[in-house]
Design a protein around this nucleic acid. Structure first.
Lengths: 191, 191
DNA sequence: TCGGTATTGGAATGATCGTTCCTGTATGTT
DNA sequence: AACATACAGGAACGATCATTCCAATACCGA
């Protein structure tokens, strides 16, 4: 048995970037082959068809998003935790990647009506991030680091929504300074 | 000279709804014909090709968005103006339309890399809404209805971004109650 | 009534795309 | 050395799609 000569994880990371930039329908198999550096036969035998590959890319992106949630799990002051989350999501990347927005958000909105399942998968991964927000706020409330009056569930939904909006704004090409200003305004809800 | 038997504005409004639901690439000419209730030849002679039709639909949607901005132009208390804006945008529609999100946001994110011009057109229409926000806040500041410390430009960007996020959330199928709660939280920046 | 034009429907075209299949060649394992 | 399998490239297929073209019909204006 001859082993694979290419690194499957590396190839998946590469194609995730491509989907991130161009979306599912906007990416042709030909581009995928060039980007991953392998040929048609290898692609179909290693990853299945284009749709299956995209699902794997969504998974890959989801784990990246999970990494960005680590500040939310560290029992920091909630305002500081959110600030660090945004730093990871928006400013720990080169600008050209930031301008891609969010693969999950793009997938939810870029739907053609059919294949609603892809949108569902993306939404479920976003829901995981929202849960991280919620748990962060709940824990903060328990130890008195957050006012009792606020609803952790609602606050988590608020920050998730803002994050989605920021992703759209980033895709529109907003400057880093503009993004930082909007984040600062949103953080005043903690005061 | 025989006149057109169909109402051009009505047909345009109908197809705008269709694009709103399914996006540009997700809509076939066949669906367009059924939806508008006319046949191929009439479509091409009255509206040009599919792309030209989509641009006209973007225009149509832009004027609808302009209508939603009227509360921002009425010198209300800014918090109240924003509240009414959101009422028009999200709650003056049947739920199934709310779930479509925003045609402009969808267009910006649903791009296949090529035809960047469509995204540019959509972004410019969103920019008009943002200007309405900004002017609303500037005017409020001049007459003392808004704290001098805040930056009208930044605040307008903040609410635009939140609106985009809400559009995504609406497309995900969030409940009306959840949307209202997020809006309420966002309005605390005025306090 | 007559001519022009809109309407209707469908056929034909040309292009793109995903997918499968096939023929080699190269290379690692047994 | 021999076999299994990955790699490479391309041909072929089927499907979808936007667009153009063409014929036949219906209807309004002069």
């Amino acid at each position: 048995m001859r082993p694979l000569t290419f690194n499957k994880q590396k190839a998946l990371a590469d194609v995730t970037q491509l989907f991130w930039r161009q979306g599912y329908e906007g990416t042709s198999v030909q581009q995928i082959l060039s980007c991953m550096g392998l040929n048609r036969s290898s692609l179909y035998s290693a990853f299945g068809d284009k749709r299956a590959l995209f699902v794997q890319a969504l998974d890959h992106f989801g784990t990246l998003a999970g990494v960005a949630c680590t500040p939310l799990r560290q029992l920091l002051d909630p305002k500081e935790a959110v600030r660090q989350f945004y730093n990871l999501v928006f400013f720990a990347l080169p600008a050209e990647q930031r301008m891609n927005g969010c693969l999950l958000v793009n997938t939810i909105l870029g739907q053609s009506g059919l294949d609603e399942e892809l949108a569902t998968i993306a939404a479920s991964k976003l829901a995981e991030v929202e849960q991280a927000f919620e748990r962060c706020f709940e824990a903060a409330q328990e130890r008195g680091a957050l006012k009792q009056a606020v609803d952790p569930h609602g606050l988590a939904a608020y920050f998730m929504t803002l994050t989605k909006g920021l992703r759209v704004a980033a895709r529109e090409g907003r400057s880093e300074a503009s993004l930082r200003q909007m984040i600062a305004i949103s953080l005043t809800v903690f005061d």
